[in-house]
Structures are given as C-alpha cells and as structure tokens.
Design a protein around this nucleic acid. Structure first.
Lengths: 230, 230
DNA sequence: GTAATAGTGTCTTTCAGACAATATCGA
DNA sequence: TCGATATTGTCTGAAAGACACTATTAC
C-alpha cells in the first residue's frame, strides 16, 4: 500500500522540491533590516537571496524554517515566526518544480550572531530600502509580500515585543514602530495609546547619560495578541 | 544536472504528496454553508472531508485548487479564491507525508451545481454550525482556521461581492454579513456605513412582491479591496 | 544653568453604536 | 386600509489626531 501510494505520487506529480524560506527581520540603528545570503552555487550563484533550505524527511515545514533560522542567526528562542505564503509552479527554479513556503521571523538584534549557512557564502543585513534590485528566484516578490504583512501585523498586534529586549523605554518601542511603518509618530499620542491598551507594564528606572532617566517597561505577554495599536 | 537534483530531493526529503484542499463557502437560506465530500476510499473511507486533490505535473497549487473547485461545483468564474495555509508533517496522512495547502473559495450559490468529484462518493452543503464532529485527516482544524479568516476578511474587505449576484438589494448584503458574523446588525447603521464607504453604487429598481420595492445596488468593483466595513 | 531626553493634558473632529418613525408598494 | 418591506436622522460616548510645555538628570 505504501509502495503504490509513492508510485502514484511520482507518476502524477513527479518529484517536487519542498523548501522553507525565512525572511528574517530585525530593527537595527532605528531602521528595519532584512537578512539576505549570497548564493554559493548555481542557480543564481552570487545573487542575494532569502535564506532557505529543503525539507528533510520527517520534518514539518515549520521545523525546517526554525532550522534555517537557527543556522543563519543562532537564535534559540524569543523570536516570532509565522507562515506567510506558499509559492509553487514549475518555472520558479530552473532545476525543476519547487514549492517554497515562506515564513517571516522577527528577531531581536542583540540575541543573534549572523553566520552564513550551508548553501551561502555570505550573509548580511540590508536596510529594507537598500535591498539589491535583483534577487535570486522570485525572492523580490516574496520580500514585498513579507513587508506588507509585517506592516499590517505591527499595527494590529503586539508583535513588536519580538524586536525588543525584556525591558525597554517607551521611546525605543516607538522607534520600532517608526522604523517599520516608515513615518514618525507623535510621542504623546503614542504613549497614550500604548498605555491605554495595556500591552505593556512599567517596571523600574534606568541608568542613563546626562539627562532624565527613562522608565523601563516590559510586555505583559510575549506571545501574539491581537490589539489595534495604531 | 536535472537527474542529480531529483536524486538529491528523493534522498533527503523523500516522496511527499502535495495536495490543494479547498474550503468552499456559500451563503444559502441566510446561513453560511461549507461544501464537504464523503470519502470513497481509505484512509478515512466514509468520513466527510474538505474537497481536495493532488497536484499534477506542471501545475501551480492555485491551478490545482481551481481545478478541484470546478470539479466539485462547476463554477467558471465570479468566485473568490485565496490561499490560507500550508499544513505539513509526516503524520497527517497514514499513507505517508503529505503537504496540504488549503485555499478558501467564496461562491455565489446560484452560479454552481454541486457534484461529487473523483475521490468522493457524495458531496453536500453543511451549515457551519451543523458540521459533523469527526472529519477526515486534520480537516476539522483547517475548517476552524478558514472560518476565522473568512470572518476577518468580511469585516475588513469588500469580499462579500463573491456571495452575491451582480445586482442585489442592501438588505441581502446585510444578511450575508449577518450569516457570516453570526449576529444581527442594525439596519440604519449598516446602510450608513456601507454607503459612506462607497464600495457599492445604486442602480434601478426591483420588481417585487406586495410591498415597497427595494433599490438594487452593485459593487463598484468585484475585486478584493481593503475597506473597514465593520 | 545648560544640554539632553522624559514625561504630560486639552481640544477638536470623526465615527461607532443605540434607537423609532415614515414611505411605498400590491392586494 | 392593511400587510409587508424599504428608507431615513439624531444623539451620545469613545477614540484619533493635532499640538507645546514642564520635569529630571549629569555635568
């Protein structure tokens, strides 16, 4: 029975590669960045690409995505990962049909150390408005889609926690929002809204430079919560 | 080169079945319905399931989904189709690993004629709150997810067009919203909001029974548009 | 006291939501 | 004129968005 099932699959759909690609975002220096890798092999050798890799036997797609994320960044937790879309079709990869399920990951800059994975000879952060025009495969399209989703997500949920350390001043939270949305926000209205939503709670003070020290906050929960932030 | 790519895939990921499953929604008799099929073969023979099928060579997943949709309902256009999520993992199907990409389709009741497809011996509409407890595979979970997404989509976009004919009275649009959201809406507030949004435009009058005839409206565009309806 | 950042309050306008009476048609 | 459905407006409360000054610290 198992045998005939496999044969049926091979006969009707053929051999299809299955990959998980992970668009890894972080906020660095007040700007939203994406992690790209330079491809070490054909096809698209030398082009920048979204990190990804083939599914292994017995894995789920999410496990593949987590594995790729760890290989590239070394994060061990405290990040946010969400499935984005599955891209398919015979023409995406010259080697043959490949189904790629894209995920996006949001990581805190300080919790990671970038390193190039297997199939890549180089990995680097790119500010989202300085991304190379030509990426490998259809990765340009995928990136656009991921950005849209991220912008939506940051406005309607509490995911911003994934970019921040446990404790942070509100000004830093605001700058995360500004980096992702690409516009400045009014400080008073922002604080009012965030505090009234109750997604953060205040804690102690903060050591600081030659100016008034800021109060530190933390997120009430570091799991996805729907909340109309903006 | 092609050969070694296929061999590499087979060695590392094995043979993975790829299906597109389509959750087909319609509004009938003022209630939201889902189309289910009764499985003709093992596994889960006799159980109700979401219609779906394996991808063919050279197809995209969306083409597979459209094909399944047409097989089951005969619709030829005027529907809405959107990718939902890709479910994966070695344990979903006893025959072996299967990646299922779920789509949801919204169709106008009158544009279709239900018929059982290949792998099904029967197809039927179920009101969403009278769905059999035990569905095949993990289809119960998938359905819950689809319902969430549909409820979100109807509140924030103009997709309601997909359930309605070209011309319709506002009361019918309202009943679509009520069927999907599962609560009644105030007529005055609903009309105010919809008209002010400008997603529908008025046309002529309507022949009717023994009461005041209603004005007919049509959607300004029958393509997805973001609009905060409710 | 100065430089630097943190923190706070009011006003206006818009919109969601509650609520009930009149209009028009066929019979 | 009755039965049935269509159509319309007002009020209230909540929240978004514009806007500028005071507070606290290190030096």
């Amino acid at each position: 029975m198992r045998q005939s099932f496999e044969q049926h699959i091979l006969a009707t759909q053929g051999v299809v590669g299955i990959t998980a690609d992970v668009i890894i975002f972080t906020v660095k220096d007040g700007k939203l960045h994406v992690l790209l890798v330079r491809r070490a092999h054909e096809p698209y050798q030398g082009r920048w690409a979204i990190p990804g890799g083939f599914m292994d036997k017995g894995e789920t797609l999410e496990e593949t995505a987590r594995r790729e994320l760890e290989e590239e960044t070394g994060v061990r937790g405290g990040f946010y990962l969400e499935q984005l879309f599955t891209f398919s079709g015979p023409a995406r990869d010259p080697r043959g049909p490949v189904n790629s399920t894209a995920y996006f990951a949001l990581v805190n800059e300080v919790s990671i150390t970038v390193r190039a994975g297997d199939d890549a000879k180089e990995a680097a952060w790119f500010p989202v408005n300085e991304i190379p025009r030509l990426l490998a495969f259809d990765h340009g399209k995928i990136l656009v889609y991921a950005l849209q989703r991220l912008r939506w997500k940051i406005e309607y949920t509490n995911v911003a926690w994934s970019f921040l350390p446990e404790h942070f001043p509100l000004a830093e939270l605001q700058s995360v929002y500004e980096a992702i949305l690409g516009r400045t926000l009014d400080k008073r209205n922002f604080r009012k809204k965030i505090l009234q939503l109750g997604i953060v709670v205040s804690t102690q003070k903060r050591l600081s430079g030659q100016h008034r020290p800021a109060q530190l906050f933390r997120f009430k929960t570091r799991e996805l919560q729907v909340a109309e932030v903006l």
